[in-house]
Design a protein around this nucleic acid. Structure first.
Length: 455
DNA sequence: ATGTTC
């Protein structure tokens, strides 16, 4: 190991983690050019190569590497939240019809297609413009852009280097949720833990919010597939001895490393554009049910990325490439590119709970820079495999249980609902409390679901 | 996560 491997969680969470998390985060700590430590967040679980919930930063001047497996298949998968001016009571008064209409308007499921069909020129513009492109195309507003990491557009994307196959898979998939743990949820703010931060974020008890969790769909997956393979084949040529073949990587300063960076950044823009289009679709439904209502974007966070950032290491500011896979950036007050109302209290850290359970809004804690290079957890984290969950529950049973608790779930896949059963996940409250105690982020608000449009 | 196995 070149640096320590640190799991940041309470004892019970650590005991509950698969032994593979320990192995994987130890392997990451062996990679060339890694600085400070390899971190596992409180919600960490086994992943491809790197654990999901893993954070690792590399210095290009010390032979540091970039790894497709350290970003993940779903490049720039993330969460955004719209803080509406509606109350949960207003949503409840039309809950059935509203859920039905939302599920009709938001394309969901494996291979789902939207109403947008991009030609080659449109695809290139989208891959370099991100959410900024989407706004120019009429999806959402210019005001949204300040509330997105990178102001909605990841610089340094190279659409020309994205394979024809990756582009083909995405041509008809813009503005779609996809499947797995992706969802659009309407939630109620139930509890506030930090009044000042809640005020800055525009959150108050009884308020309805819309949360969107999805990523870069077929394009990100295709890029991940291609570069995992290419990096695995190329690693020996760079003199990199891999502790695990799944940790395939390339030096940041190599041709392959630079090519992956540009292509991955195009994938980030795809995810930002996708969430921006879904925001527009959700606002359309809100407007039909509640004419004149407002649903401004609180913030959009990505939790599968590698980003170039400045961090202080051993008293010296260094330019690092920070992999966060199933981990959220967590800038404290005054850090980074946050607009004034957010900068004062820290970056919103949006934590999607499992279907039917609570979700959380946290605020970046300035201690997080020292603890984990300004990173935090991203969700509940799986406690049970999809296969085991599908054997344990049925989709219709879970749907009925949730309906009895006032939560309406729609999905094209009954098996998908079973796989995402609340019992298949860790206790998100425990994860969040653990993150707060460690200084990764502070609790601001707890949310309970009303309507869940599931992928 | 994923045209759920190039």
């Amino acid at each position: 190991m070149r640096v320590p491997a640190e799991i940041i969680a309470d004892e019970d969470l650590i005991r509950g983690m698969d032994e593979k998390v320990r192995q994987q985060i130890t392997n990451v700590a062996c990679l060339p050019g890694i600085v400070r430590a390899a971190y596992a967040m409180p919600d960490a679980h086994w992943g491809y190569g790197f654990p999901i919930g893993g954070v690792a930063a590399f210095d290009p001047d010390q032979g540091g590497v970039i790894s497709a497996g350290g970003v993940g298949f779903d490049i720039s998968c993330g969460v955004r939240m719209l803080a509406t001016d509606l109350t949960a009571a207003q949503i409840r008064s039309k809950q059935q019809d509203f859920a039905h209409e939302m599920s009709r308007s938001i394309p969901a499921g494996v291979g789902s297609q939207g109403h947008i069909h991009l030609d080659d020129a449109g695809m290139s513009a989208m891959l370099s413009g991100g959410a900024r492109w989407a706004v120019a195309e009429g999806y959402g507003t210019v005001e949204d852009l300040a509330r997105i990491e990178e102001q909605g557009q990841m610089a340094g994307a190279t659409p020309d280097m994205v394979s024809a196959r990756a582009k083909r898979r995405q041509r008809d998939e813009m503005g779609t949720l996809g499947s797995g743990n992706h969802y659009l949820e309407v939630q109620e703010v139930t509890d506030i833990f930090d009044e000042a931060a809640a005020l800055a974020y525009g959150l108050s008890p009884g308020q309805a919010v819309v949360t969107i969790h999805c990523g870069s769909r077929g394009l990100g997956h295709q890029i991940g597939t291609e570069y995992l393979r290419e990096m695995a084949l190329a690693a020996p040529g760079y003199g990199i001895a891999l502790p695990d073949r799944e940790l395939a990587c390339a030096p940041i300063d190599s041709e392959l490393g630079q090519r992956y960076l540009g292509v991955m950044r195009a994938g980030i823009n795809c995810a930002l554009a996708n969430r921006q289009i879904l925001t527009h679709l959700a606002r359309d439904v809100l407007e039909r049910f509640f004419p004149g209502c407002k649903a401004p974007l609180l913030y959009d966070v990505s939790h599968n990325t590698c980003k170039e950032e400045l961090h202080e290491i051993d008293g010296e500011e260094r330019r690092l490439f920070v992999h966060r896979k199933g981990a959220t950036r967590s800038f404290g007050p005054g850090m980074g590119d946050l607009p004034p109302p957010l900068s004062k209290v820290g970056q919103p850290v949006l934590i999607g709970g499992s279907m039917g359970t609570e979700s959380w809004v946290l605020a970046g804690d300035d201690r997080s820079e020292t603890v984990a290079l300004s990173s935090a957890c991203h969700g509940a984290g799986r406690a049970m495999s999809r296969h085991q969950a599908a054997r344990t529950w049925t989709g219709s049973g879970i749907r009925k249980d949730l309906a009895a608790r006032g939560i309406i779930v729609t999905s094209p896949s009954r098996r998908g609902i079973a796989e995402e059963a609340p019992g298949a996940y860790k206790d998100v409250t425990r994860v969040v409390e653990s993150a707060e105690r460690a200084g990764l982020a502070r609790r601001v608000a707890r949310l309970a679901p009303l309507v869940c449009v599931k992928g």
